[in-house]
Design a binder for these strands. Structure first.
Lengths: 306, 306
DNA sequence: TCTATCCATGCGGTTACCGCATCAGTTTCC
DNA sequence: GGAAACTGATGCGGTAACCGCATGGATAGA
């Protein structure tokens, strides 16, 4: 009972045309081929599907049932292959992007909008999280690629995307708010409100403080940047954030000023698995993203294309 | 883009097992066969479905999509073949019976009840109509077989089923109602209420009157036997009906008496298309019917198994 | 009766497919 | 550290499936 698609296709064509010759013309095969295919199918099923003499082809009851079923199967195959083809052409499916919350919220929405306009059948799944979870999502293959900080490993290939300058975030009434720029040294003398140690921002601020020889014991720390924003707004201290993160801090009464001496950037890369072909849909998403870069699409102040 | 079922089955097995060797064992084929089948499929699709080294087999994004689709197709094939098999075994489908109203209403219900108990998945379609429509339904193949009157032709093969004796139907107060039996001759002297000319009953009553040399001009005629029953009950005249038809006459105040000189029977045959194999489900229905006959299942008075 | 057309079938050639044996790379376990 | 075990890939030879061509047998229509 293992009919082949070839047999079913042949049978369906013959049954629908009620003629071997006509079906053969239609399928661009010889009539003898169809004659055999149908005969083989009948033999395998142990039932006559077409009652035929030299003049007429007529469906038996079993033939009617078999036609219905054969067309179901052939259609399932045809539409399935069509669907897979669309997927392979990057015209359907899902692009899974693992990225930091600031990138997801500030940088990507415009790109996604553009991408969805071009390929409405492709869903975009944003997997936002902190650096480690982002990287592991890419490494495991759950995400097609990442946009994140972090250093290339043997497993991942990085392509620089944007640079994101650190700025000082100060309570509105803070003395330093008077200044056009703030130095890291000045910032180090204030109570520092840090994000949690899992955040890549924390790693970079720690490194900046270490670079100028200042201690980095935070006055308080919180996992969520919005929480830190709230603390700053309440006047508990100051913090330093990449410019892209500012929109996530909330709308409290705080101001931000460029941080100098040194000027510190966070570099955000596109990270893909090394030596793995990218699904075409993901590739198309990256193309859209690169177009933004090529067109020097406007970015928030302090953020520049790498 | 014409993948075969064999390739899809092979791919699905390998992808699901995440192992060529394990899938080969499971499918009882060689590992090399699967290796080639998957490679061929990948080549045809122009995409890598499995990322594999000598130790691990892992699905790519396209592979995940392909697995879903391949299983859809393979399942459609498997379940379709299963369905067809059930049909061929007479375990599903429809039995279409073309028959006269009296047979449909009086003789068949018991048989259908029994048949449905044995094969609940098989539907029974009763196509009731007059002799000509019944015969044409069988000849066209719309019905699997018929139970009807009529003479065998080259196209149809008849198997006698029951004999159905004609009885006189009289108004309750009619003088002939006093008698134990009524002759056709006596009946011919009364106003005769006939069914329409398309009915096989009419043909038989006309023939009976002709046989005894009586004219057969009816006092009135109606297409429906229930109408004739109403006319008799109203005292407009008498009629003659096969015993099986009596239940269709209604419940009016009339009586019936055996008709003699001559005793006339209507023969009801099973009629099937000559030299055409009967669908198995229909065959099973006829078997059930023949069991009734073999067991001499009780029939209404005046009706006997042929 | 002749012709055109239908489906079935014998025939020869090609391709697809299979399993076996083997290779190359990796992991596991002494 | 190295042998053993196991993985998927591949060369090879044999078999079976499949194709188209040519033809046969049968029937409808001219």
């Amino acid at each position: 009972m293992d009919s082949t698609l070839r047999q079913l296709t042949a049978y369906a064509a013959v049954a629908r045309a009620a003629s071997f010759t006509a079906a053969a013309t239609h399928l661009h095969v010889s009539q003898s081929s169809l004659s055999r295919a149908v005969a083989d199918l009948e033999r395998q099923l142990g039932a006559r599907l077409l009652e035929r003499d030299t003049r007429n082809v007529e469906l038996t009851a079993a033939g009617t049932e078999a036609l219905r079923i054969a067309e179901q199967i052939v259609n399932a195959h045809r539409s399935g292959m069509k669907e897979l083809e669309r997927f392979l052409l990057g015209e359907s499916g899902t692009v899974a992007v693992a990225t930091l919350p600031s990138v997801a919220a500030v940088l990507l929405p415009q790109v996604i909008l553009d991408f969805r306009r071009q390929r409405p059948q492709v869903a975009v799944q944003l997997m936002d999280g902190l650096e480690q979870s982002v990287l592991s999502r890419v490494l495991s293959g759950d995400a097609d690629f990442a946009i994140t900080t972090g250093e290339p490993s043997g497993q991942l290939e990085h392509r620089p995307l944007v640079r994101d300058r650190f700025v000082a975030v100060l309570p509105q009434e803070h003395p330093l708010a008077e200044r056009a720029e703030v130095t890291w040294d000045e910032l180090a003398r204030e109570p520092f409100l840090a994000v949690g140690p899992a955040s890549s921002v924390r790693r970079l601020t720690d490194a900046a403080f270490a670079q100028i020889g200042a201690g980095s014991a935070p006055a308080a720390e919180a996992g969520n940047v919005a929480t830190v924003g709230g603390l700053v707004a309440a006047g508990l201290g100051v913090t330093a954030m990449p410019a892209l993160v500012l929109p996530l801090l909330g709308t409290g009464p705080f101001v931000h000023r460029p941080l100098v001496e040194p000027t510190v950037h966070r570099r955000l890369d596109i990270a893909v698995r090394a030596r793995r072909p990218l699904p075409l849909a993901a590739d198309r998403f990256l193309e859209t993203l690169q177009e933004f870069r090529a067109r020097r699409h406007e970015l928030p102040p302090g953020v520049t294309w790498a």
